[in-house]
C-alpha cells in the first residue's frame, strides 16, 4: 500500500484506543483527580479577590438601601458642602456627634496631603537609588544595597509608625517650626520610609532589564556613563519606572498604621503640612473598634474600604500594564 492509501484508511477507520490494564486506568483516574484538585486550589486567589469586594461592599450597601442610613449619610452629605452656621467649616467628619457629619472631603484631603509628601520624598530617593544600583555602583556595593532594601521593606509598618511618633516627631517639629508634633508632614515622611523599597525594587528591575547592547552602543558613540544612564537607559525603562511610582502611590494610599500613629488624625481641611491630617485608611482603623455593627457609621467605614479597594485596584492595573509594556518593548514583542 502506498502512503495515500494508508492515510485514507486511517481516516475512515476509527482509531482503536489501546486497551489499558485496570491498574493503569486507576492511575489515569488518579492523575485526573490530582490535576483537578490542584486547579481548584489555584482558583482560591480569584475567589479571595471576589469575596473581598463582595463582602466589603455588602456591608456598605446599607448606605443606599436603608432609609435611616440614607438620611444620615447620603452621597450629597458625603461629598458636597453642607449648609452650616456662618463661620463653621462646611466639610466635617464627625460621625458620632449628635448631628452626624459625614463629609469625606477632609479624609480625601488628608490622604492626598500625606501621600503627596511621601511621593515627593520617596520617588527621587527610590529612582535615583535604583539608578545608582543598576548603573554606577561597584558590584560589592550593589550586593550590599539589595539586602538593605529588603530589610527596610521587612520593617513592619507599625514599627515605622512608632519611629515616626517617638523619634522623628520632635526633629521634624523643631526643624520646620510646626505648632503640633503630629502633622501631615511627619506622616508623609513616615510613609516615605515604607514606599522607598517598593519604588526602588520595581525601578531597579526595570533598569536592569534594559539590554546591555543599548549601553554599549551609547558608550561607543562617545556618550559619558551619566549620559548613557540618563538619556538611554532611563527612557528605555521609563514605563517600568512609572509603574514603580504608581505602585508606591497605591501602597501609600492604603498604608494604615503609619498615618494612624503619626498624622494626628484631625479632620481639618488645610493645605498646610504643619496641620494634622486624617486619612481614609486611618479613619477605618481608628473608628471600627467602637462602632455598632449595622449602624450607618459602620456602613460608612466599609464604604471607605470600598473606595480604598477601588483606588488601589485601578492603580495596580495601570502599573502592571506599564510593566508589561517595558518588557514587550525591550524584547521586541517576543513575550
Amino acid at each position: 500500500m502506498d502512503r495515500q492509501a494508508i492515510m485514507e484508511q486511517g481516516l475512515t477507520q476509527p482509531l482503536v484506543a489501546p486497551l489499558l490494564s485496570p491498574a493503569a486506568r486507576r492511575r489515569q483516574l488518579r492523575e485526573k483527580v490530582i490535576a483537578g484538585f490542584i486547579t481548584l486550589m489555584a482558583f482560591t486567589g480569584i475567589a479571595a479577590l471576589i469575596l473581598i469586594i463582595i463582602f466589603v461592599a455588602k456591608e456598605a450597601l446599607a448606605l443606599f438601601t436603608e432609609p435611616e442610613a440614607r438620611h444620615e449619610a447620603s452621597l450629597s452629605k458625603m461629598f458636597l458642602a453642607q449648609d452650616v452656621a456662618p463661620g463653621r467649616p462646611p466639610f466635617r467628619w464627625q460621625p458620632v456627634s449628635k448631628v452626624p457629619k459625614v463629609s469625606m472631603i477632609p479624609l480625601f484631603v488628608g490622604t492626598l496631603k500625606t501621600t503627596a509628601v511621601s511621593m515627593l520624598v520617596a520617588v527621587p530617593l527610590g529612582v535615583f537609588g535604583a539608578l545608582f544600583a543598576a548603573e554606577f555602583a561597584p558590584r560589592r556595593l550593589r550586593e550590599l544595597l539589595k539586602p538593605v532594601i529588603e530589610l527596610l521593606a521587612g520593617i513592619p509598618s507599625v514599627v515605622l509608625g512608632f519611629f515616626a511618633l517617638m523619634v522623628m516627631s520632635t526633629v521634624v517639629k523643631e526643624a520646620l517650626g510646626f505648632d503640633r508634633p503630629l502633622n501631615a508632614m511627619l506622616a508623609g515622611l513616615g510613609l516615605a520610609l515604607a514606599i522607598v523599597p517598593v519604588i526602588f525594587t520595581v525601578s531597579e528591575d526595570a533598569l536592569t532589564s534594559v539590554p546591555r547592547s543599548y549601553r554599549e552602543a551609547s558608550l561607543a558613540l562617545g556618550a559619558t556613563p551619566w549620559e548613557t544612564a540618563w538619556k538611554v537607559v532611563l527612557p528605555a525603562a521609563a514605563p517600568g519606572i512609572l509603574a514603580a511610582c504608581v505602585l508606591g502611590f497605591g501602597r501609600a494610599i492604603g498604608e494604615t498604621m503609619i498615618v494612624l500613629m503619626a498624622s494626628g488624625n484631625a479632620d481639618v481641611i488645610s493645605w498646610s503640612l504643619g496641620d494634622s491630617a486624617r486619612s481614609l485608611s486611618a479613619t477605618i482603623a481608628a473608628e471600627m473598634g467602637e462602632v455598632v455593627v449595622g449602624s450607618p457609621h459602620y456602613s460608612l467605614l466599609f464604604f471607605i474600604g470600598v473606595q480604598l479597594f477601588i483606588f488601589t485596584f485601578v492603580l495596580n492595573l495601570i502599573a502592571s500594564t506599564w510593566t508589561r509594556r517595558v518588557v514587550r518593548k525591550l524584547t521586541g514583542g517576543a513575550s
Binding site: A48, L51, V56, E255, L308, T312, F313, N316, L317, S320
Partner: peptide, 27 residues
C-alpha cells in the same frame, strides 16, 4: 484561566491591609 489567576494574585498583593481587616470582619 492561568492568566486570570495571575492577575488576581497581583491585585490581591495590592489590596491595602486595612481592607483585609474589613474583609476578615465582614466575611
Amino acid at each position: 484561566s492561568a492568566r486570570f489567576v495571575r492577575v488576581a494574585v497581583v491585585n490581591l498583593a495590592g489590596v491595602p491591609s486595612i481592607v483585609f481587616g474589613l474583609f476578615g470582619l465582614g466575611f
